[in-house]
């Protein structure tokens, strides 16, 4: 829990960092306030959507947009593909990333649906190796609060989250399992997987 004054400070430094990012080279290390600022923004956007009272279909579109805007989709896609990424051609990898982006944002957009009517709150951030862990709590109606953790990195050149943990269950590990199983079902045929992924999720 943080006071409003500190929250403003985080937001301000986040804004300052955002401004600096446009001129500074990406080699500079991500700081905890910057990681917090990104997730503050993500959380603000999600809260705006889940309390907007829009139709569910419309909310799903908004969630997709949030996902694409604030997460590092290429790294999530490559990690989900795992070993198969090694033998894929650059064109296949590129097509896979595009297909995966739609699939993952539809799927996790739907998962955020459970938060409708509730709210998300940023709790604390701490550095871990060369990225940051930002803890948030989802307060849902009639349910015990749920812990949602975002991992944030600037290794892409921008501050983006690359993994989400909902009550300890993480997206990268689940998607690696899922994409691996889908690939097995298609006898390792990556092109078929890409085609099917465009409809999945």
């Amino acid at each position: 829990m943080r006071s409003d004054a500190t929250r403003r400070h985080f937001l301000m430094s986040g804004l300052a960092a955002g401004a600096a990012l446009t001129v500074a080279p990406p080699a500079r290390a991500l700081t905890t306030p910057e990681a917090t600022a990104l997730i503050d923004q993500v959380v603000a956007d999600i809260n705006a959507v889940i309390n907007s009272g829009r139709s569910e279909a419309r909310m799903l579109q908004e969630f997709e947009r949030i996902f694409v805007r604030y997460s590092d989709v290429p790294i999530i896609a490559r990690s989900a593909l795992g070993v198969a990424a090694r033998s894929a051609s650059p064109a296949q990898l590129s097509a896979f990333t595009t297909a995966f982006r739609g699939y993952i944002s539809r799927k996790y957009g739907r998962r955020f649906r459970e938060f409708i009517g509730g709210s998300l709150k940023v709790e604390q951030a701490r550095p871990y190796k060369n990225f940051h862990e930002v803890k948030t709590t989802a307060y849902l109606r009639g349910e015990a609060p749920i812990e949602v953790i975002f991992l944030v990195s600037d290794r892409s050149g921008r501050d983006l989250f690359f993994n989400v943990f909902i009550e300890g269950v993480n997206m990268l590990a689940s998607e690696r399992t899922e994409i691996g199983a889908m690939l097995d079902q298609r006898q390792g045929d990556l092109d078929r997987l890409i085609a099917d992924l465009q409809r999945a999720g």
Binding site: A85, R86, R101, L151, N163
Partner: peptide, 24 residues
Amino acid sequence: YFDPYDDPYATPYADAYATPLEAT
């Protein structure tokens, strides 16, 4: 925590932002 940026499977494509993916 698992760091996908250090993923051993990803070494051939260490730079996810290299040309082929930039467009996507």
